[in-house]
Simulated scan of single mutants.
Amino acid sequence: MRIAPALLAAATLLAGCATTPMARTAGPANVPPGMQYLYGSGEAAALSEQAYNALVDSVRAQLAKGRPATAAILLPAANGTSAPGTCGDKPYAAVFDMDETAVLNLGYEYNDAQTGATYDTARWSRWEASGAEKVAAVPGARRAFVALRAMGVTPIINTNRNAAGAVPTARALAFAGLGDFKHQETLFLKGDADGKSAKDGRRAAIAARWCVLALGGDQLGDFTDALGTTPAARRRSVSSSAYADWWGRRWFVLPNPVYGTGLGSGWDDTFPASTRWTDPGDAASVAQPK
């Protein structure tokens, strides 16, 4: 899921090394570390394969027990909380984000790395329109989609790409080898269902028609919009009793150190005061008053 702005500087700091953008004509000396990891490393590929293997195994195990009563999509409940949707006799589906979950936007990220340009909606729209053949499937996605379809489970894409770009978006998915997707049936785009960029409305519309057995995404908003708005709140929420049992069972997260809500935490969010260590062998630290 592409979220503005693209925080490449934050990704670089996350990896422990800051770089200074070079002139557009020259390009950077090195690939930004976050991009090296996600797009170039075996470790990121292994994590993606692992997530997709686990998702397919979970779906297979659910079906082996008979028709599930509840879905993997949480819907608002009358008491202000949320509860799983019901399955009934609806057809089976699994719902995925698109960008950096099902496809890797190699062409766009190459342009980002080379130019140092910040995210803007017009440039992203141009990418959607012209970059369909500059993507690749996320490792594990193609095999997983084939396996799901063989079990009678339909992959559905729920993405914040623009509704105006439905045709090239479907073309990108097909080019990546993920199959055919149809807008408003197996492809849901920003604004569909409720006019919002948040995804709960689209998930509710999908859950009304499908028994959703699993969700895959690279951002917390790919699973529910209720996990908080700050890094600290989101981190607390994912381990709360309301959500902890969903991860790795019905919700499956893929790696993305390049952009999105996973980046941007401050010192206090990342390193709680009670955990901070000062090296007693550091002369500057030793000189500090106790």
Rank of each mutant, 00 (worst) to 15 (best):
G42N: 11
F96Q: 03
F181T: 00
A226N: 14
P289F: 12
K190Y: 14
A9E: 04
T169Y: 02
A78M: 12
S82V: 06
A69F: 06
A11G: 06
D120R: 04
D194N: 11
V253P: 02
P28R: 11
P231E: 03
G165K: 07
A287D: 12
A10M: 08
G281R: 15
Q50I: 04
T261Q: 15
C17D: 15
P84C: 00
D200N: 13
Y243R: 04
P21H: 06
D89Q: 11
V212S: 11
V238W: 11
M35W: 05
A163K: 06
A204M: 09
A61C: 13
A147H: 15
L148R: 09
A72C: 09
A208K: 07
N111D: 15
N162A: 09
V253M: 05
A18K: 15
G191D: 03
T186K: 00
Y37C: 00
G66R: 11
V59E: 03
G40Q: 12
A26L: 06
T25D: 14
Y108I: 01
A94S: 13
P257D: 07
A233Y: 12
F188W: 13
W246E: 05
D245V: 04
K65R: 14
A198V: 07
T275R: 14
P231V: 02
V138D: 01
Q219L: 00
P68Q: 02
G34I: 02
T86F: 04
N256H: 14
M151K: 09
D269M: 05
G27F: 04
I73T: 04
A4V: 09
A69G: 09
N111S: 14
S130G: 15
Q62Y: 06
V59I: 06
C211P: 08
R203P: 01
A93W: 00
D268F: 11
A69Q: 07
A205C: 06
A136P: 01
R235M: 12
P21Y: 05
A29Y: 13
A226S: 15
A9Q: 11
G177N: 02
A64K: 10
Y39F: 02
F145M: 09
Y52L: 10
A44I: 06
A204T: 07
A23M: 13
A26P: 03
L63V: 10
D180W: 07
W124K: 01
Q62F: 07
E109Q: 12
